[in-house]
Design a protein around this nucleic acid. Sequence first.
DNA 1: CGTGACGTTGAAGAAGGTCAACCAATGTGG
DNA 2: CCACATTGGTTGACCTTCTTCAACGTCACG
Lengths: 255, 255
Amino acid sequence: MAHSNTPGLQRFLDRLTARSVLSAEEQQAILDLPGHTGQVEANRDFVDLNEVTEYACLVVSGIAARFGQNAEGGRQITALHIPGDMADLHSVVQPAAGSALQAVSAGTIMRIPHWSIRAAAARHPALAEALWRDCMVDAAILSQWVVNVGRRDAKSRIAHLLCEVAWRFRVEPNVAESFFSFPLTQAQLGDATGLTCVHVNRVLKSLRQDGLVKVGNRMAHIFDWNGLAQVGDFDPTYLQTQIRPEERLRIVQRT
Amino acid sequence: MAHSNTPGLQRFLDRLTARSVLSAEEQQAILDLPGHTGQVEANRDFVDLNEVTEYACLVVSGIAARFGQNAEGGRQITALHIPGDMADLHSVVQPAAGSALQAVSAGTIMRIPHWSIRAAAARHPALAEALWRDCMVDAAILSQWVVNVGRRDAKSRIAHLLCEVAWRFRVEPNVAESFFSFPLTQAQLGDATGLTCVHVNRVLKSLRQDGLVKVGNRMAHIFDWNGLAQVGDFDPTYLQTQIRPEERLRIVQRT
DNA sequence: CGTGACGTTGAAGAAGGTCAACCAATGTGG
DNA sequence: CCACATTGGTTGACCTTCTTCAACGTCACG
């Protein structure tokens, strides 16, 4: 049972060690985190707005979305989380959820008790630092979303989003063509970009006709990475994903 | 010289202790942080995009804006920081600035070396926790900005922004009328809400004619809080500002 | 007293929303 | 195995919101 948790935690650990330096012992502390793994059906909210949680949700498979709502019930997706992301890591330190979480597609979620993460962070200060840094990467992404929604037109917005997700999936950008799982409906794409599903449809058609990307059947198929990145005005620096090993950070002294 | 730093740090400490429980010693560690205080002129960028900084910027007076840009140079303000905010606290743990910082109005900035904040956090784990939590409050605000820009019309957006800033200035919402310093130009307001300055002008006119708020002369004057909050679809919960003393958090054990 | 930054207004146009119909794929119960 | 419902995608016609462009006003300041 404990071992069945490992794949999800391993991907989370990979995410941490991509940016932070952790000792073998610290890494093991992550892999040893306890939790309940369970299925979530598509379109199911699994953390409600203003819910006070006692666990953080690790996405093991599928895609999760964080979203807010306006007065008329219009949804705005504020973050997408792919496998290996801790969708509400911030809840460790701020348990009142400021926004709800929804499964975009059917998937698997591991609920990891706050106390266990807190205990690991208290025992290993470098872990606390790595977790804090991980939250800051999500904040940098969020900040880019504001720019995307506020200052780009529909075509750029969608192109940018597709680039971001592809990049986070580590789709190889050098390969001319690339494929990845993209289970968002057009309505959800609209909720992520501040557009209506009708307009998303037209924009996707236009991107397809330009020979840049084809989205559908729960997949995205990028034909022209450079072209897509250009219309999407996409610069991956903010994702902090191309960090060379020697650039990874550790402030806390090794004990 | 050291004492002249205190007012700014005291406000920052107030911000921390509003949400986190800190011992007298931990509080003193904040007040003892060293730094250089200096003036910044209006519209001056004081941290550039992708600059790697060695200090964090505490806003002592004036207003600072974090912003991103699209390919055509269109600016999008992603955060506003008022006195007492550490505008780039995240840089302590992630020194490569993901976005630039600009002074919206002439003001005073205190540059606090990362090493000093890191040393304080290492010595006092509760401080590390409080700083992390503070970053998460900024992230919650950011998340609301995505909703604001993505899913509200121009009038609501501006009303929401005005409510947020007023609330963060702790303008008393029970008082029917209230005043506060609001030095943003209409162009900057547009950059914050994803609108053009022309449209901002028209929306402000309309809000004024509705008897809700008057913005101008570097001041905002709210005539009808409830009305403004309603058109702005504003619920201050996300600001985590109404926390009762017994609800403040401390996870780390007191040593 | 001129010059620049900021605010205000009007007219025209474009981007995107709304409404409504229809299609294709999938799933469900009889 | 088929009738039917449901969900997601596609398209067209029309309308609203916001942008663009351009002019002009006004205040502060050198």
